[in-house]
């Protein structure tokens, strides 16, 4: 996959949809391409996070540790981004991501990301996208809470 195509792909990701294509090209250029076999970990729950992955090809499971062992809480496929929270703040991984098929991904490092973000226009667009995502997640959480309460009642 060429740089141009990666840029197209990045644009389909909500966080980057409104970012200037020129900047996206820079971000893509600054990121590296990585390949994984099936059943390899992109990252592990509890590790310090320093990069996000955009899946170009293949799929992976999102797993969380629970007292009963690992529980699958989601799945990522092509055109998806995982681990993006660490791009904006420090913290540990909240889940493990393990590939289920061979995966081709674009690894966006926090360092490179923050350097592309030096431009205020870019920052605004990305934070807006993050805020929208946060908004969606919170309302989802609220709905879940309501559902749980109803269940308890």
């Amino acid at each position: 996959m060429l740089l141009k195509e990666e840029v197209q792909l990045l644009r389909r990701i909500p966080y980057f949809a409104k970012v200037d294509p020129c900047r996206l090209k820079l971000l893509a250029f600054a990121s590296s391409r990585v390949s994984y076999d099936a059943d390899q970990e992109l990252f592990h729950q509890g590790d310090a996070g320093d990069c996000a992955y955009v899946l170009l090809d293949g799929s992976a499971d999102i797993l969380m540790e629970s007292p009963e062992g690992e529980v699958k809480i989601g799945e990522v496929k092509g055109d998806c981004i995982v681990g993006e929270v660490c791009l904006l703040c420090d913290g540990v991984r909240t889940a493990t991501v393990r590939t289920t098929t061979p995966v081709e991904a674009l690894k966006i490092c926090k360092d490179a990301f923050s350097k592309v973000l030096i431009d205020p226009g870019v920052t605004r667009e990305v934070t807006r996208a993050f805020a929208e995502q946060l908004h969606r997640t919170t309302s989802e959480l609220d709905r879940t809470r309501v559902g749980q309460r109803q269940l308890v009642n």
Binding site: C22, F29, A112, K115
Partner: peptide, 17 residues
């Protein structure tokens, strides 16, 4: 030129990339 042309002169990418 397309990628780096608009970056400020002291942008760290010039060293890194």
């Amino acid at each position: 030129v397309d990628i780096f042309g608009s970056l400020p002169e002291d942008h760290p990418f010039f060293q890194q990339m």
